[in-house]
Design a binder for these strands. Structure first.
Lengths: 196, 196
DNA sequence: AGCATACGTTGACAAATGTCACAGATACTG
DNA sequence: CAGTATCTGTGACATTTGTCAACGTATGCT
């Protein structure tokens, strides 16, 4: 099983076409594979995010809790995407967010120290880092635009476009939380969509 | 006037307490001051964001246009904050966003090349870059959380908290666009708040 | 198998917000 | 200073979405 995780990670790295075999070996040597069961936490509010974490299989959510105790999903991460609190990770400050697994999942982790080592020793690693950060920003800004410009039904369609098939894997109330609507509203939207 | 801009910039840089006088001189030597009039564009959708831009006075908005032609404000930037499309800037791809001035404004710009030079030659400049990016992420995630967890009136209160006094400087329909509500709704919210 | 928990659906109703139309107010410009 | 464009406020009404309560189904655990 850890073999599968490393294989996924190596394939992920290779898709960027930035590194030699030797460099890839170095990166892999610092990578820590990990398995998490459904509902297991990767990060809790108040603690510091100390690992860059790539999802290899499964799915994670990042969420915050409001004054009334309700959870709100800031982000979802599936295989091939990183699941961090970028703010805590980059600044070393305690996180505002919880991250937990929505399914049994596997990840690869690089500690902040390992990551720093790679940034210093592998020239193109900066470029990888750059692309990860850019993607983070992109996702956030698209999400803000989605929230501003679409209402519930179109947000749901957009969700399906962005996360194809994910809506068959995770509970509907998680999707509702991501979209910012109540679960009842999402139920009604879905039955509306079937009628057409 | 350009003197004021440089002074603002130097003060901004000094607040980080990361650079020697000599380094600050180097940074300033690459910085380009600029004045913009109300409604003047800093970036248009389709073109590439080629400058890191610090607002020294005034205010800018970043916005996108939806399928119906409506503008939606992704971000607002006031003095002491950077106003970029981070995605276009970091990746070199054409931007999805427009950026224009909401007031007569002044900025300092560093071209991507200058910025790269500084990153390579001034050790602590990476740290500055890091803090800028972290702040970008933080703002976006807070905004998503705000959209998910609060309704219109509380979003407006939050707006006032985050941008004190700005609500007296920019048109109300801009704030409405930022909050994701109609201009009429915001009018009513404001008169409600006065009654109490 | 049986119980408990979690999840999804539905209806009735309430609350929040949007839309449209129009009227004032304000600010810019020649 | 008049005239125009821009911005804001208000009422009537429609639409969207939330809330509450109840029920049914699935799922997992012992």
């Amino acid at each position: 099983m850890p073999e599968d995780i490393f294989n996924f990670f190596e394939n992920y790295i290779r898709t960027y076409d930035l590194f030699s075999d030797r460099e890839i070996a170095t990166i892999k040597s610092l990578a820590i594979p990990k398995q998490l069961k459904k509902r297991q936490f990767l990060l809790r509010q108040g603690s510091v995010c100390r690992y860059h974490t790539l999802v290899c299989s499964g799915c994670f959510r990042s969420y915050r809790i409001d004054d009334e105790g309700c959870e709100h999903i800031i982000g979802l991460s599936t295989a091939g995407h990183w699941v961090n609190d970028p703010v805590s990770l980059l600044s070393g400050s305690p996180s505002n967010e919880f991250i937990d697994a929505l399914e049994d999942s596997t990840v690869i982790q690089l500690s902040t120290n390992s990551f720093k080592t790679l940034l210093e020793n592998i020239p193109n690693f900066k470029e990888l880092n750059n692309r990860i950060i850019t993607h983070d920003c992109d996702v956030c800004r698209d999400r803000i635009f989605m929230m501003l410009s679409l209402q519930a039904e179109d947000r749901y369609r957009e969700f399906i476009r962005i996360f194809p098939k994910l809506h068959e894997r995770i509970p509907i109330y998680m999707i509702a939380s991501y979209l910012g609507v109540s679960r009842e509203t999402l139920t009604r939207i879905r039955s509306n969509m079937l009628d057409l």
